[in-house]
């Protein structure tokens, strides 16, 4: 075939076509996937796209018509979830360059911003994305309130949602300390001082948060483990329950 006048573009197209015909490609997608060869747009296939897919964990095959209108939900819940994924991805990137120790943390963040390819961009994405996530989660809660979407049978899912908001704030707060600069140190000092005013066992709460009586390298390690492992683990569990209950409690709440 080589050199018989076939253009490169045709050859690429042919190779792509034969790849899509291969048993490997065929096995990759379940019936009804738009990536499968010979997909046609039909009501049956539209159902299959969701039903035969990992997407079925998140979405039903059909949704109420008003749910599609952007002005109803403003996509806030979905965007919060998406920002969580984005923060996970950028966070993993940052973890490659960061050591949570008193002497190394600041140097690592500085080096990340100056001598790592896209390091600065990824750090900025992580930071602004985190602020945005606090905002979208909060606005999502407000949206749900104004639609009365916490009413039966969705009461418990609202409670789960409040826990998710708290976890989001904690995630953001624990991440705040990690650059180990003046901003981080004193913001966390102010924040943990507030926690120290808890009645009865304030000092114990503060001690547990700080790993000492003031912000030290122990605190840094503690906040790091909370930030990259413990809180994401907990929030994922709560998110799973949250999304499951959205589906089971009758999908999106009705139109006003």
């Amino acid at each position: 075939m080589i050199g018989d006048g076939l253009k490169l573009r045709d050859r690429v197209a042919e190779a792509a076509d034969s790849f899509r015909r291969s048993p490997f490609w065929e096995s990759m997608f379940r019936p009804g996937s738009p990536f499968k060869r010979g997909y046609s747009d039909s009501p049956r296939n539209r159902s299959y796209v969701i039903m035969n897919n990992v997407l079925y964990h998140l979405h039903p095959v059909k949704v109420k018509r008003h749910a599609v209108r952007l002005s109803y939900t403003l996509c806030l819940g979905g965007l919060s979830f998406f920002l969580f994924i984005l923060l996970t991805i950028t966070g993993i990137f940052l973890m490659f360059y960061y050591r949570p120790t008193e002497p190394a943390a600041y140097i690592d963040v500085e080096a990340l911003s100056t001598s790592v390819a896209f390091g600065s961009l990824v750090r900025n994405l992580h930071r602004w994305g985190a602020h945005l996530m606090v905002l979208t989660v909060f606005l999502h809660m407000s949206r749900v309130f104004y639609h009365g979407a916490y009413k039966p049978p969705r009461e418990f899912n609202w409670v789960v949602g409040v826990v998710l908001l708290l976890l989001t704030l904690l995630l953001s707060f624990t991440g705040y300390l990690l650059p180990w600069d003046q901003l981080a140190l004193w913001a966390v000092t102010v924040g943990t001082n507030m926690a120290g005013f808890t009645p009865l066992f304030g000092n114990q709460v503060k001690f547990a948060l700080l790993g000492g009586i003031e912000v030290t390298g122990n605190t840094l390690l503690r906040f790091y483990v909370l930030h990259v492992l413990f809180l994401p683990f907990v929030i994922v569990i709560f998110m799973a329950v949250h999304f499951w209950r959205v589906r089971k409690d009758g999908g999106i709440s009705g139109p006003l």
Partner: peptide, 23 residues
């Protein structure tokens, strides 16, 4: 650019000291 101030210094308390904006 995301802020990165000077290295944390226990002896220099900034005035004012502020928490993250959501607090």
């Amino acid at each position: 650019q995301a802020p990165l101030l000077e290295l944390a210094n226990f002896n220099a308390t900034p005035n004012p000291s502020k928490a993250p904006w959501y607090f």
